[in-house]
Design a protein around this nucleic acid. Structure first.
Length: 354
DNA sequence: AATTCGGGGGT
DNA sequence: ACCCCAGAATT
């Protein structure tokens, strides 16, 4: 184990109190608010999550309000934040706390872990911030700070690495102010011990930082490379009926965007032209139900929507029809549905002057 | 233990 | 292009 610096927590907290950002979930110990913020900030930058937090607190002042909301409404408010299972689990947990726990969140790590969408990190965050329990959090910031200060080169995305860093964080935590310590080390990682080009020359820890002493700051933390991203090819059929209606479908299977809405989709193994598209069985099945008047490609070059693990090469096919088929919605009401950013961007571009 | 879940921002 | 972000659930 690395040599523990006894004053590390005090120095860290001192830095935090002078440099912390004022955020709406700071200076509160309301478990509902802390839980909400922690779910939203999973794998998400503070500045990206902040407007969503404000929207949710206004729309759902109490956990009971969130519990009573329809799932589609919650997903719509979450639209654009990504990782939509968080929104579905958020809603599930709100209902559980509201209906089965008398609206009271669990006050310890073990029981917090039982909540959907709450893992080791979030359970520790809530337990420490709301209930003053000495549970150390380990997030991306903590990995970076500890790997550098203590010179630990164990890969952070392995189970042994996760155990090692968790144990170290647990040794370091200030048991008298665990919530403040946890927020301090994360804030320090987010604002000072940043991934690239940190200002080590002026760092409060540079006398003791192993990475700085050994000039290995840029090498830490160590992370095993991810696999290359997959390319997928999406063809959306954008129906336009004479009375200004279109077809939206809810994604129901596994995979990305579960329970969000989109236009009828035909996925292919490569980019297709109109003549190839028309030969596909999926297209012909679709054409049996819809009386297609005209069809044309909206975007000459595919829109490449980049997710962390796949690139979606997307073509939008404009399909004009005369009469309505089943399940159409007014074009003016598309904005009421939770859709992926890929769809939202197309809608705002295409229908802006429609 | 490895994979899969978004989207935005920085370099 | 590649990396990272106040991770969790599923395979």
């Amino acid at each position: 184990m690395p040599k523990i610096v006894p004053y590390f927590p005090n120095k860290l907290i001192s830095w935090y109190l002078q440099n912390k950002r004022e955020l709406p979930w700071r200076n509160t110990a309301n478990p509902y608010h802390i839980w909400l913020s922690e779910i939203m900030l999973q794998q998400t930058r503070v500045l990206q999550g902040l407007p969503y937090y404000l929207k949710f607190v206004e729309a759902y002042p109490k956990v009971e309000d969130l519990a009573k909301a329809p799932e589609d409404e919650v997903l719509k408010l979450w639209q654009g934040l990504g990782y939509y299972s968080r929104a579905r689990n958020l809603h599930t947990t709100a209902k559980m706390v509201s209906e089965e726990m008398n609206g009271v969140f669990p006050d310890n790590h073990k029981n917090l872990l039982k909540l959907k969408g709450v893992g080791d990190y979030t359970a520790s965050a809530i337990a420490s911030i709301c209930f003053n329990k000495p549970e150390a959090v380990v997030d991306g910031n903590v990995y970076r700070v500890l790997s550098r200060v203590f010179g630990i080169s164990t890969p952070i995305n392995t189970s042994t690495g996760q155990k090692e860093f968790k144990q170290l964080a647990q040794q370091l935590i200030d048991e008298k102010q665990p919530g403040t310590f946890n927020q301090a080390i994360m804030e320090f990682g987010a604002r000072y011990c940043v991934p690239q080009n940190p200002d080590c020359g002026n760092c409060i820890f540079n006398d003791n930082c192993v990475a700085f002493q050994q000039k290995k700051v840029a090498e830490l933390p160590v992370k095993i490379k991810a696999k290359p991203v997959k390319k997928r090819f999406f063809n959306y059929l954008v129906i336009l009926s004479e009375n200004e209606r279109t077809i939206l479908q809810q994604r129901m299977g596994k995979g990305i965007w579960h329970k969000l809405y989109e236009f009828p989709l035909i996925e292919t193994s490569e980019e297709v032209n109109l003549s190839t598209l028309k030969k596909l069985q999926q297209f012909q099945d679709f054409a049996k139900k819809i009386n297609i008047e005209t069809i044309s490609l909206f975007n000459e070059k595919p829109v490449v929507h980049k997710l962390s693990h796949q690139h979606l090469n997307t073509q939008f096919w404009i399909v004009e029809t005369l009469e309505d088929s089943e399940n159409t919605v007014p074009i003016s009401e598309i904005g009421n549905y939770a859709v992926p950013v890929l769809i939202a961007d197309f809608v705002s571009e295409f229908f802006e002057n429609y």
